[in-house]
């Protein structure tokens, strides 16, 4: 089994309620239900998203020991994307326009694209993106080792489809809720407003600075 990486970006997520125990077969079975399915031979532009493991990148097997990462459960989402390379499309369009001696009409451009999709896409290999996440079941915390917004949304969706559990993304409000504050402080957190820190103006005359409390009172 390869080791998880020790650098990069991370976003934390939290969940509420009870979810499957990663040590149970039902957890692996839930991943299997939403396993990754290849689009290697697809003849159209497609995106496929599903679970694999660090040991088996195909999504064929989900042994419980392959998910074990010590304190955490190691989840791996695979995103394959098959797309007609735009440069190929441009080259074929340039050739067609040169042969014709003028620009292609919108209809001709569409027909050229459809024709190229039929011919080229079965030969185009998808791009592959493996995204790792560490699930700390007893802490109801998940750390996604990727900071892309679109990847985060794909992960959120796949996780929900698999475990019927919505994830809450960490941000200054959510992380505050997780920080063990007392109810009164939590209430204040929700209503907090930014502090307007004093701004000093360049001046030769030394003068008394307005205190923070006075400034907030006047605002």
């Amino acid at each position: 089994m390869p080791s998880i990486r020790r650098s990069g970006g991370a976003v934390a997520f939290f969940w509420q309620g009870k979810m499957l125990d990663p040590r149970d077969e039902a957890f692996a079975a839930a991943l299997q239900q939403r396993r990754f399915r290849t689009i290697q031979d697809a003849a159209s532009e497609e995106v496929s998203t599903g679970w694999v493991t660090a040991v088996d990148p195909t999504g064929d097997s989900f042994a419980i020991e392959d998910l074990d990462a010590g304190l955490a459960t190691w989840l791996r989402m695979r995103i394959d994307k098959k797309q007609l390379p735009r440069k190929w499309l441009q080259i074929h369009r340039d050739v067609a326009e040169k042969a014709k001696g003028k620009k292609l009409s919108a209809k001709e451009r569409r027909e050229l694209k459809d024709d190229l999709m039929d011919k080229l896409l079965p030969r185009v290999l998808p791009t592959i993106n493996m995204v790792d996440a560490l699930l700390y079941h007893d802490r109801r915390t998940l750390i996604l080792l990727n900071t892309s917004k679109s990847v985060g949304e794909s992960f959120h969706q796949l996780f929900f489809q698999t475990f019927q559990m919505p994830l809450e993304k960490s941000d200054p409000l959510q992380l505050g809720f997780q920080a063990g504050l007392d109810p009164e402080t939590m209430h204040k957190l929700q209503r907090a407003e930014p502090i307007r820190w004093p701004k000093s103006e360049p001046s030769d005359e030394p003068r008394r600075r307005t205190t923070l409390a006075e400034q907030e009172q006047h605002a």
């Binding site: 080791s3 998880i4 991370a10 190691w74 750390i143 505050g176 997780q178």
Partner: peptide, 22 residues
């Protein structure tokens, strides 16, 4: 072993930031 160690370190970083923020 390396994975278990790094997994603990990722969690520790998250918890330290969370505790400081708290």
């Amino acid at each position: 072993d390396r994975t278990a160690d790094r997994t603990a370190n990722w969690l520790a970083l998250h918890e330290l930031v969370q505790s400081l923020y708290g």
